[in-house]
């Protein structure tokens, strides 16, 4: 029989959020994660700054190139490093969100206070996301500051706007992985198992998926390609498969934002080339339009995974 419950599901959300945020910021785990990020982020930034100091071109988006330049010494750009590291941070923050409460036997005591489970799960998610945001903003400011000091030119307004949008996309990307990590923390009672599963998903998307998607495409694609339309269809199917990975969505969004000359994230059609000046940057709003599906995809993924965790958590028994 349907019986509606009374009271706001957000009762107690504030205290849960504040506690999670404070716990994360003061935890040793957070220190380790920050160290990780700084080490992995510093190398690409330092080397790309070295390269950029020799460039003199007032029209190029020099600040954005700090993020995207793939220098020869390191072979990886700052954004590519983030693509890889943000999931790790989010998993680190979320893999034991719920099951550790269970194992410490605090879950039933906390839930016997006047709050719904909604507030606990959402508070933990937002606490983790805020922590991630603080770390990413700090990192972003460090990179920007280093750029200012070493390049000696201030960033232009549009570069700041693109940089800030990049930050928002990075946080949304972190949110997806935080939701995945929390989903496993709800499913598995053992923190080790949930960490392992979350890391497994991460490795799957970064190592296995590109090859798996390629193999899938071969088996799904028509055996012979007769026209340009066939070719385009196969191309877009391949892209669609790749875009199931949050990492792909993130890197495409970053490409659109930080490389303003990007006109399309799929195959370039002749119609899109008409009247275009090769290498000319797109206006900011056009770049945002270009990557809008990717950003929506990331946010939708975050919501879907969080909703799954929510449904499972509501059905879980609190008793030991």
């Amino acid at each position: 029989m349907p019986r509606s419950r009374e009271g706001s599901p957000f009762t107690g959300l504030g205290p849960v959020f504040m506690k999670e945020f404070a716990d994360h910021l003061s935890s040793a785990r957070m220190m380790v994660l920050m160290l990780f990020v700084i080490v992995f982020g510093a190398f690409p930034v330092a080397t790309s700054l070295q390269t950029l100091r020799t460039v003199v071109d007032p029209n190029s988006f020099i600040f954005l190139r700090i993020f995207t330049l793939e220098s020869e010494q390191v072979g990886i750009s700052f954004t590519a490093a983030l693509n890889f590291i943000i999931p790790l941070m989010a998993i680190g923050l979320g893999f034991d969100a719920v099951n550790s409460e269970f194992n410490r036997r605090t879950l039933s005591r906390v839930l016997s206070q006047p709050i719904y489970r909604d507030a606990l799960l959402l508070g933990k998610f937002l606490g983790g996301l805020a922590t991630l945001a603080v770390a990413l903003v700090a990192l972003w400011l460090i990179v920007l500051g280093a750029g200012l000091l070493l390049l000696g030119v201030p960033p232009r307004g549009v570069e700041v706007a693109r940089g800030l949008s990049f930050l928002v996309v990075a946080i949304a990307y972190g949110g997806v992985w935080l939701a995945i990590a929390m989903l496993f923390s709800v499913i598995f009672r053992s923190t080790a198992t949930s960490a392992l599963c979350a890391l497994g998903v991460w490795l799957f998307f970064f190592i296995l998926w590109p090859q798996l998607a390629g193999a899938l495409l071969i088996s799904l694609a028509p055996s012979e390609i007769r026209s340009i339309d066939d070719y385009a269809a196969v191309q877009s199917m391949g892209l669609g498969l790749m875009r199931l990975s949050p990492g792909t969505l993130f890197s495409e969004a970053v490409l659109g934002l930080l490389s303003p000359e990007t006109r399309t994230l799929g195959p370039m059609l002749p119609s899109q080339m008409r009247g275009a000046i090769m290498g000319a940057p797109l206006p900011f709003d056009q770049s945002v339009l270009l990557i809008w599906p990717q950003v929506t995809g990331l946010i939708a993924g975050m919501i879907v995974v969080f909703a799954a965790a929510y449904v499972i958590f509501q059905r879980e028994e609190v008793r030991a």
């Binding site: 019986r3 509606s4 419950r5 009374e6 009271g7 009762t11 016997s112 206070q113 006047p114 709050i115 719904y116």
Partner: peptide, 11 residues
């Protein structure tokens, strides 16, 4: 079942 917050506030 319907008013858990009220119950949990007092118990």
């Amino acid at each position: 079942v319907r008013q858990p917050l009220e119950v949990k506030r007092r118990v």
